[in-house]
């Protein structure tokens, strides 16, 4: 990435920052429209910079531009829309677009997992809570943002820092992707019982991304899988404990006792 491209990127970020700044909810005269124009301009400028300065035309794909636009504009709307319901629904859009970006990078399994977990479970729960908690009107804290300038400044400086660094990454050429798809890379990692099965069920599936993901996760990172399971269990218990309705109990509760006296006069249970 040339220096000129880098500076062009910084310019684009500045433009985008201005757009997001205007779009953030505020009391008084709305400047959403001008902000939206600026932000869209910034997004398209970003894609233009990428197209001319970064992406190797031989490997570029039109889908990248499409889904990058959807993801970035959607994300912008998530953080700037005054109605949380819309934010959540825009987020669905972002999740689907990001899933598409992952598919473009060959991570099909991860992409579908993203859609199932995020769009199918997490976001619908968010939507559920939003709808339950906020049934009418638009309260003041949704129509006002706090210190939008500092926030935008910090965020976009960070963005610029990362992007400036990203310019030094080696371009992923044929070598990288060839290593990904080569059977040799697969064969090196498939000393697992799953593959030694002489079952016909494995036919036609042996090259797929999901199988290789399974091998990697279940062979190389099996401890992490266990830890993830424990984490989910803990989260489940935590969520149940948090949202449970409190049953009034007899006797003094811990909260009624002055600080420092707990454990001395009140039994811990």
């Amino acid at each position: 990435m040339s220096t000129a491209t880098t500076y062009a990127l910084y310019l684009v970020f500045a433009l985008g920052g201005a757009g997001v700044y205007f779009m953030l909810p505020r009391t008084g005269r709305s400047r959403v429209l001008s902000g939206a124009v600026l932000a869209s301009l910034a997004v398209f400028a970003l894609l233009a910079v990428l197209a001319f300065g970064v992406i190797d035309p031989a490997h570029g794909s039109g889908y990248f531009y499409l889904f990058a636009v959807i993801a970035l504009l959607g994300a912008g709307r998530v953080i700037t829309h005054p109605k949380p319901t819309y934010s959540a629904l825009y987020f669905v859009l972002v999740a689907v677009a990001v899933a598409a970006l992952l598919v473009l990078q060959g991570a099909e399994f991860l992409a579908v997992a993203l859609v199932i977990i995020y769009a199918g479970a997490i976001l619908i729960t968010y939507a559920f809570v939003i709808m339950l908690a906020q049934q009418s009107g638009s309260p003041i804290y949704d129509r006002q943002s706090r210190e939008p300038f500092i926030a935008v400044f910090a965020g976009f400086v960070l963005m610029a820092a990362i992007a400036g660094r990203a310019g030094e990454l080696p371009l992923a050429g044929e070598t990288v992707d060839a290593a990904l798809t080569a059977p040799a890379a697969l064969a090196a990692q498939t000393e697992s019982p799953a593959n030694q099965q002489d079952d016909s069920a494995q036919e036609g599936a042996d090259e797929s991304n999901s199988l290789r993901m399974g091998v990697i996760i279940m062979v190389n990172y099996v401890v992490v899988v266990q830890i993830a399971g424990v984490l989910l269990l803990i989260a489940m218990i935590g969520a149940i404990a948090l949202s449970r309705k409190k049953v009034p109990s007899d006797g003094p509760r811990a909260a009624d006792v002055p600080l420092g006296e707990i454990g001395r006069k009140v039994k811990p249970y």
């Binding site: 500092i150 926030a151 910090a154 965020g155 400086v157 960070l158 820092a161 990362i162 660094r165």
Partner: peptide
């Protein structure tokens, strides 16, 4: 914000 400022400073130091 303080966390982010820290991150940015770290990033710049590395940079």
């Amino acid at each position: 914000v303080s966390m982010i400022i820290g991150i940015i400073i770290l990033a710049l130091v590395v940079f």
